[in-house]
Each structure stands twice: as structure tokens, then as C-alpha cells.
């Protein structure tokens, strides 16, 4: 476990990125883990014609991308016993099999309220290997001090 105090964090501080290369096998495993068996993620034959995203290939679950983005925060906050209170995301581009998803986080706001109520906002972003933005989001993290 690590010690991270509210006083020690600063707006502009970057969190360690969370980066994963994804493929169809990973989409299937995520379907099993989440119970989201929607064919747009899982059925390469169906999606050739159905094309919900106007592309003829499967795309990653948005919730998997959101989970990767969230892992940027948990990797920092959980070992320090900080509490994640909110997470929101907007997906801007579907993730294709074979892409590398790089998720990053930057502390953008430091809310100085009172002991036990102080929190920070982390701006989150997911990009592919070409730097195209896949999703953006925010998380709020509560400090005990």
C-alpha cells in the first residue's frame, strides 16, 4: 500500500497510463466477464452485414474501454486507499480488433472542501496507436485527509 495525501497531489499531475492491445479473443473474454454478448462485439459474420457502427468488423465493448480508462485511476487510487466516487465517459470512436488502446489520466481539478470531503477530478482519455481519440471521461476521487 502507498501513502498519498491530498496535500501531495497537484492539478496537472499525470497518472501512469494503462495500455492494452485488443483482439477478438479479448472481446469474447470480456463478453463472458461482463455478460454482454451483443453480437456487434462478438460475431464477425453477423457484423459484416448488420454494421451498427457502419463498419464490417466487430468493435470492442465500450464498457471494456471504460474499464481500461478506469484502471488508470484504480492503479493509483486503490493502493493508496482512496475512494472513487464517480466515473463518466463518452465514446468517440469504436475500437477495432488489433488496435492498441492507451488510456491516460491527468488530475485536472483539486476540490478543497474539508477533511474527509476533499477530492480531485481526473480527466481521462483513451487513444489508439495512431493517436486517434477513442473516448474521454472524468473520475472523481475522494481523499480521507
Amino acid at each position: 500500500m502507498t501513502k498519498t495525501t491530498f496535500g501531495s497531489v497537484q492539478a496537472g499531475q499525470e497518472l501512469a497510463p494503462f495500455t492494452k492491445k485488443v483482439n477478438q479473443e479479448i472481446f469474447w473474454k470480456y463478453a463472458v466477464a461482463s455478460f454482454d454478448y451483443n453480437p456487434v462485439h462478438n460475431d464477425p459474420e453477423w457484423v459484416k452485414t448488420a454494421q451498427p457502427f457502419k463498419v464490417p468488423y466487430t468493435v470492442a465493448h465500450g464498457m471494456m474501454t471504460m474499464s481500461f480508462m478506469t484502471s488508470v485511476v484504480t492503479s493509483w487510487a486503490y493502493p493508496a486507499a482512496l475512494t472513487i466516487t464517480k466515473i463518466s465517459t463518452k465514446f468517440t470512436k469504436p475500437v477495432a480488433p488489433g488496435w492498441t488502446v492507451k488510456c491516460t489520466g491527468v488530475i485536472s481539478e483539486k476540490h478543497v472542501i474539508a477533511k474527509g470531503k476533499n477530492y480531485v477530478v481526473v480527466d481521462l482519455k483513451a487513444e489508439n496507436q495512431d493517436g486517434e481519440v477513442l473516448a474521454v471521461g472524468q473520475a472523481e476521487v475522494l481523499f480521507p485527509d
Partner: peptide, 15 residues
């Protein structure tokens, strides 16, 4: 939420 053809535009969670 199970609908074939549904698309996910983004989500909001509060813990």
C-alpha cells in the same frame, strides 16, 4: 440493454 444493433455512446457511474 441486450438489443442487437444497440450502440454505447458513454456512461455515468456513481459509487
Amino acid at each position: 440493454i441486450r438489443t442487437p444493433g444497440a450502440r454505447n455512446p458513454g456512461q455515468d457511474f456513481e459509487f
